Amino acid sequence: MDNKNQIVGKVKEIRRFPVKSILGELLQTVSIDKRGLVGDRLWAIKNMNGKFGSGKTTRRFQQMDGLFNYKARYEDTTPIITMPDGTDYRGDDNAVNEKLSERLGYQVTLAREESISHFDEGPISIITTSALRKVSQELGEAVDPRRFRANLLIDTDSTGCLEDHLVNQLILVGPSVILRVVAPLQRCIMVNNSQEELKQDTRLLRYLVNNHESTFGVWAKVESFGKINIDDKIILV
């Protein structure tokens, strides 16, 4: 895709995840800085070995089962953690560490990002409605965008995985935010996991492995700061 100043689509959803690997919040507007959506994945659940809760185990991350039973949102700059029973705990209250440890069955703390980023790959994740339509059609059932935990869902009239064609391109989102699309996003077992009313679905990751090199969506880094709003146009620059 190399038609400069072409309108790619518009922002349909903005999602921010204050705490890595748990559910987040749906926003109407958000500020963007060099790190990405302000506050996105700024916090994580850390075990006593210094590893952060995730859907997979790596050098830095530890798989923790049931994280999608928890949800986070911000009140000003303080994360508010909602437990599976609906009870809220403030991130600046040590009671949240006690309750998370009790529920998970081992000692953890809610930890703010320090020198090393909590991101798996990059600052801002993007998917499109056209890619969702393609996967939904081939699976024979609508695929909910929440499964991919993307920061931005772009509404587009295009067909297929439009975002794949944006790699190495600059896009203008709204009046001032410029993003450089860097690479496709590798997907793991988390796309299959149940969350809220969505049930476990083992077909999704298998489909991506077999048909799309285990990727879905793209990640981007920030070239120019500003604010993003629902319905902002996205233009190829």
Rank of each mutant, 00 (worst) to 15 (best):
N192Q: 08
V191Y: 02
R149T: 09
R147A: 01
Q137S: 15
V182A: 08
S130E: 03
R133I: 01
L204C: 12
F148T: 03
E213M: 09
A150N: 05
G122I: 09
I127C: 04
A142P: 10
E213P: 04
M190E: 01
P175K: 15
L132T: 06
H212D: 13
H212W: 08
S214I: 10
D164V: 07
G226H: 12
S214D: 05
R149N: 00
G217S: 10
S158D: 12
E196A: 13
Q186C: 01
G217D: 02
G226T: 02
L198I: 10
P145Y: 07
K199S: 11
D144C: 09
T129Q: 11
V222D: 00
V177P: 03
V182S: 06
R203N: 07
R206K: 15
R146H: 06
L132V: 09
R206W: 01
R149Y: 05
S224L: 03
N210P: 06
S125A: 13
S214L: 03
T128N: 03
E213D: 13
V177I: 14
H212K: 11
V177R: 11
S130I: 06
V182R: 06
I171F: 12
V135M: 14
I171N: 09
R206T: 13
S117H: 01
D201I: 04
V181T: 07
N192T: 03
R147P: 09
T129P: 03
C161R: 03
V143D: 11
I189Q: 11
A150L: 05
C161D: 15
K199Y: 00
S130V: 09
T202P: 05
S125M: 11
S194G: 15
L185H: 06
T202N: 14
V182I: 15
R146A: 12
Q195Y: 00
G174A: 01
S176E: 14
G226Y: 10
L205Y: 05
E196N: 10
S194T: 10
V222K: 04
K221F: 14
